[in-house]
């Protein structure tokens, strides 16, 4: 046993696009300990998102192994994977991925509904989270009525809904202007200080410098 939450071993990911197969990850290995704040950097197309999706159990590697809390993920039942995505990992997408027909409140509430949490507890938690990301006033607004920064705050709040240990963020500030990006960053710092393990992809050196450790990718390999 060791104390790493995440351990990836020689991970390879190949995409089959018709005749050619593209290797987005060409054998990546690293470990991440509980409570770390990690920046994943690298040029566009270097495989950062691919890696994050695998860590977030949104995708499976072609080869290699991934241990989450010392359990090999590829051996898990789809329902167990769903539970991990629901309870253990919070994922923040670059493109937010909010449901357009639900209000801010509804979007943040959704992971708790899938977790089977009862109504009054859900409501309390949603209100807390909206407060935390500074969006209490906008609870009833739909994503289409919000700016990019506001949508990303809702997405962050959603990722925190079931109080996950790990937060994964794929360029959370990439689509936002620098000032708003900074406020989102502060939010992540706050979360890290509260003890969460945070892995985020970023292009911004300033952001990367704030992190404890960098994982830099180049053409699917760790530099």
């Amino acid at each position: 046993m060791n104390n790493s939450v995440i351990k990836v071993n020689n991970i390879v990911k190949e995409y089959n696009t018709g005749t050619v197969s593209v290797a987005a990850l060409k054998g990546v290995s690293f470990e991440i300990k509980k409570g770390e704040l990690i920046a994943v950097t690298g040029r566009s197309g270097s495989g950062k998102s691919t890696l994050m999706h695998i860590i977030g159990c949104l995708d499976q590697p072609t080869r290699g192994s991934y241990f989450l809390d010392n359990i090999e993920v590829s051996s898990l039942h789809p329902n167990k994977l769903a539970e991990i995505r629901n309870l253990k990992i919070g994922f923040v997408f670059q493109s937010f991925n909010l449901l357009p027909y639900l209000s801010a409140f509804g979007n943040v509430e959704l992971p708790m509904i899938f977790a089977g949490i009862e109504k009054n507890k859900r409501e309390k938690r949603v209100n807390e989270l909206l407060e935390l990301v500074g969006m209490s006033e906008r609870a009833l607004h739909k994503p289409t009525e919000m700016s990019g920064g506001e949508q990303q705050r809702i997405a962050v709040a959603r990722s925190l809904a079931n109080n996950p240990e790990i937060i994964l963020a794929d360029e959370p500030t990439g689509n936002l202007d620098s000032k708003i990006g900074e406020s989102i960053m502060n939010l992540f710092m706050k979360l890290w200080e509260s003890g969460k393990t945070i892995i985020m992809i970023t292009h911004d050196p300033k952001v990367a410098d704030k992190c404890q450790r960098k994982i830099e990718l180049l053409d699917g390999e760790i530099l």
Partner: peptide, 8 residues
């Protein structure tokens, strides 16, 4: 989206 945030 729903599966990504943990729907079974």
């Amino acid at each position: 989206v729903k599966i990504a945030i943990g729907a079974r």
